[in-house]
Nucleic acid binder design. Structure first.
Length: 287
DNA sequence: ACGGATGTTCGCGC
DNA sequence: CGCGCGAACATCCG
């Protein structure tokens, strides 16, 4: 489930429980998870006996800095998460790596689909990491105002939703946050980015900031990352994501869906009209 | 039983 | 160069 808010929640969770602690031993099970090609040091060698000196988040990446020249870079993919357990408890299924701390504490990286990645890097190579280096501004770390967003959107006619999900444009926005931000801004996901008005761009910037804050707040009381699909007792905290065929919370029109950049996008056909002209008339009608 | 799922990267073709 | 499309990674759920 991880997009920016979930990864931020994970960072806060790990800071509370792992920061300044000593990793007595570390192990990673399947080699697929690890991409240590840039260093000669193994996962176990790099981490064992080290203290975690800082935990950072950039976009959807987690960075665990160690009291050595190495860092652990973690990307959760679609289904990755870090969980806290006692070392005497059995490993959850799909455990891919474990960081053992003192007092029988262990942090396990669990990733069902294994689309996430763990990498051991030299600190000096972090800035050269291709995916990290190409990230656009992070809305939480760098802020995202309308002027900045306008510059990022001006040069392309790609659908706005595809652009918002492009990590090189803005870091941390995935399918859910892009869907939610566009609903909040009342902008159709397929509108060409460069066709958007100044007011619409302002609404999108505000929508991004608002949906991230809302999602972060929804996770605040959770101790670990909860997958919506795992927990049917947790109610859907989103305005349109996962609400196809439900009534729009603003106008009661049924929420619809359209595929943009190969991802399904929930939207309200009435609040988020496909053309700018239709947007104007919808606003005049008071939507 | 098949299609879809919160992510990213890469190759292909226009 | 821009961009859409599909595949690949691996697994589960409805």
């Amino acid at each position: 489930m991880p997009e920016l808010p979930e990864v931020e929640h994970q960072a806060r969770f790990l800071r509370r429980l792992v920061l300044n602690r000593k990793i007595t031993r570390a192990e990673a099970s399947p080699t697929q998870v690890l991409q240590g090609k840039t260093t000669s040091v193994s996962f176990t060698e790099a981490l064992s006996g080290r203290h975690v000196s800082a935990i950072e988040r950039v976009g959807k990446f987690l960075i665990l800095r160690l009291d050595s020249s190495f860092v652990l870079l973690s990307h959760l993919g679609m289904t990755g998460r870090w969980v806290a357990r006692s070392s005497t408890d059995p490993s959850p299924s799909h455990t891919r790596a474990s960081l053992f701390l003192e007092e029988e504490r262990v942090f396990r990286y669990v990733d069902r689909r294994m689309l996430g990645r763990l990498e051991i890097l030299h600190e000096a190579d972090l800035a050269k990491h291709k995916s990290l280096a190409s990230l656009g501004p992070d809305p939480l770390l760098d802020g995202l105002d309308a002027a900045r967003l306008a510059t990022l959107l001006a040069t392309t006619r790609r659908p706005i939703k595809a652009v918002l999900m492009d990590a090189k444009i803005i870091a941390g926005i995935g399918n859910i946050q892009a869907t939610e931000a566009l609903f909040r801004a009342r902008v159709h996901p397929q509108r060409p980015a460069s066709s958007l008005s100044k007011d619409e761009i302002t609404a999108i910037a505000d929508g991004i900031v608002a949906t991230i804050a809302h999602t972060l707040a929804a996770h605040a009381h959770e101790d670990e990352i909860v997958y919506l699909s795992d927990r049917r007792d947790v109610k859907n905290p989103f305005l349109v994501y996962g609400r196809v065929n439900e009534a729009c919370s603003r106008c009661r029109t049924l929420i619809s869906t359209v595929v943009v950049a190969m991802r399904s996008s929930a939207f309200c056909p009435s609040c988020q009209p496909a053309t700018r002209a239709a947007t104007r008339s919808a606003l005049q009608r008071g939507r």
